[in-house]
Amino acid sequence: MIICERKPIDELKSFIAGKKKVLLVGCRGCVTVCNAGGTKEVEILAALLRLDAQKDGNELTIDEFTLERQCDPEYVDELADLVAKQYDAILSMACSVGPQFLSRRYPKEKVYPSLNTCFIGGALAHGVWAEHCQACGNCIIHNFGGMCPVSRCSKSIMNGPCGGSSNGVCEISKEVECIWHLIASKYMDEGRLAEFAPLQPIKDWSKSRDGGPRKIVREELVK
C-alpha cells in the first residue's frame, strides 16, 4: 500500500490560517490501513485544529467526511453536495492522489494535502512501515530471492552488496538493513550461488518514472 504520514500541525495550521470553514476529507484506502488518514485520523486532526482555534478564540468550523477512496472519480463525486456548502479550504487526508483528484473535480476549491506521501511499503509490525517498492515498472525480484534491490538498496545496485555492507546493515544507517546481505546470504545458505552469480544487466529504467509520467489503458475495461 501507499504509506503516508500526517504533515506537522504547524504546516496544516498555516494552510487554514484566517479561514473559517474547513472540510477535512479522509480516505478509506491505504491511508486508513497505515493510520494516517482514515476516519479516526480525520477526527483527531479535526479535534486538534478545533482546540487550537478555540484556544485563540478564532471562529472555525470543521466538517469531517471520509470517502471510500479519493483516487476514484465515482467516490470523489460523492463530495459534491458537501462541497456546495462553500468551504474556505478543503484538507485532503489521502495520499497526494487524493488532493489532486479533489482539485480536478472541484476546480474552484482550495484543496490542500494534509499528508506527506512517503513510499510504497508494508507494515513490519503495528506502527512500523518500511519501503518495499519503487514502482520501477518492471518487477525483477524473482532474480533476487524475492527481495527488491531497487527500492531496498540505498543505491539501487543490481550487483551487490557494495563495500559499505557491514554486519547486515547499510553504510547510510544502522537502521537500514542491507538488502544485498539478505539476498546473498539466502543464496549461499541454499547452496544456489551458481544460480545467483550471473552479472545482472544494466537496468532499463524506461518503464519507471524516468520514462515520464505513466499511464495504463486497458481497452477491455474502458467504456
Binding site: 540505498s154 543505491k155 539501487s156 545496485i157 543490481m158 550487483n159 551487490g160 557494495c162 559499505g164 553504510e171 547510510i172 544507517s173 552479472l199 545482472q200 544494466i202 537496468k203 529504467w205
Partner: peptide
C-alpha cells in the same frame, strides 16, 4: 565505482542517480 551515498556528504538534499552500479 558506485560511490558513497550522499546522505553523509555535504549535500544530503541531492537527488542521486545510480542509473547503474560499478559493475555496470
Amino acid at each position: 565505482l558506485t560511490g558513497d551515498h550522499q546522505k553523509f556528504g555535504d549535500h544530503p538534499q541531492a537527488k542521486n542517480v545510480f542509473d547503474m552500479d560499478a559493475i555496470g
